[in-house]
């Protein structure tokens, strides 16, 4: 679960590094759920300076390589103008039930945020 937006907060970077390390150790990631300002990690309008990491594309690439399910909360997204039209590839929009479902099915739920 990622609760903070990209660049303004470390949460998404840390979550990404954690996810990569977990996958490298052979763990499975049931889902990555974006909530609060975390939904801003999923906008395809993101254009960081060229010498900086591209947080959005980096998630999409990791998802493609490992078949990750990147889910953006619909309600939190609507509040912040994140809709299908500006959703980056590799992400999908769904409900909070997906978060609760992950909590039930996964061995661990890790929260990245303040």
């Amino acid at each position: 679960m990622i609760n903070e937006g990209p660049y303004s907060h470390q949460a998404s970077d840390t979550a990404y590094q954690f996810a990569k390390a977990a996958l490298a150790k052979g763990h499975q990631i049931h889902r990555v759920f974006f909530y609060n300002d975390g939904v801003n990690n999923a906008t395809k309008l993101t254009e960081p300076p060229q010498d900086d990491r591209h947080i959005v594309n980096r998630w999409a690439k990791l998802a493609e390589e490992h078949g990750l399910d990147l889910v953006v909360c619909v309600a939190a997204g609507l509040r912040r103008g994140l809709v299908e039209e500006n959703l980056a590839p590799g992400f999908r929009i769904s409900g909070l039930g997906q978060l609760v479902e992950s909590g039930i099915q996964a061995d661990r739920l890790v929260v990245f945020g303040d």
Partner: peptide, 13 residues
Amino acid sequence: QGGEKGGMDLEEE
């Protein structure tokens, strides 16, 4: 919002 629960076959899973 309606349909917030999301997830197919969620009840079963």
